[in-house]
Nucleic acid binder design. Structure first.
Length: 111
DNA sequence: ATTTTGACTTAAG
DNA sequence: GCTTAAGCCAAAA
C-alpha cells in the first residue's frame, strides 16, 4: 500500500469519463492533498502513460487549458476535449457543465 | 538534507 | 480582464 502520490494521480486521472474535465486541484484533493495541485501538473508532464491517462481532460481551475506534453500541444488538447463533448465558452471550458463529478455514473461515450 | 523545477491556486492591485 | 507575488507540494539530482 505504499502507493506514491504519482500512482494515485494517474489512477484518478485514468478514471475521468469521456466528456468530463477536472482541475489539478480537484485531483490533488482526491489524492488526499488538496494543495498538491502543483505536484499533479508535474506528474502530468512526466506522463509515462500517454494514452492510458487522459491528461488532456485535466485543466486549470478556471477551465482554461494549460499545457500538453503529448504531440499536438494545446491545440490537440483543445480539439480532443471539444470532440468529446466538453463545452467551451470564450475559449475556456464551462466547468459548470463539463466538470467531472466523482461518484457519478460513468457515461458510455461522448454521445 | 538542500536545491531546482513545474501543465497549480489564490489573493491583491 | 490581466499581471505580480506568495504559498504549496512532490520527485529528481
Amino acid at each position: 500500500m505504499n502507493k506514491s502520490f504519482r500512482e494515485k494521480i494517474y489512477s484518478i486521472t485514468r478514471r475521468i469519463p469521456v466528456g468530463a474535465v477536472t482541475t489539478y486541484g480537484q485531483i490533488a484533493r482526491l489524492a488526499g492533498n488538496d494543495r498538491a495541485a502543483r505536484a499533479v501538473g508535474f506528474f502530468m508532464k512526466m506522463n509515462p502513460f500517454a494514452p492510458e491517462v487522459p491528461c488532456h481532460r485535466v485543466v486549470s481551475a478556471d477551465g482554461s487549458l494549460t499545457g500538453y506534453s503529448a504531440k499536438g500541444g494545446l491545440a490537440r488538447k483543445h480539439q480532443l476535449l471539444k470532440e468529446e463533448g466538453v463545452v467551451f465558452k470564450n475559449g475556456r471550458i464551462d466547468l459548470s457543465v463539463s466538470r467531472w463529478k466523482t461518484g457519478e455514473t460513468e457515461n458510455t461515450g461522448p454521445f
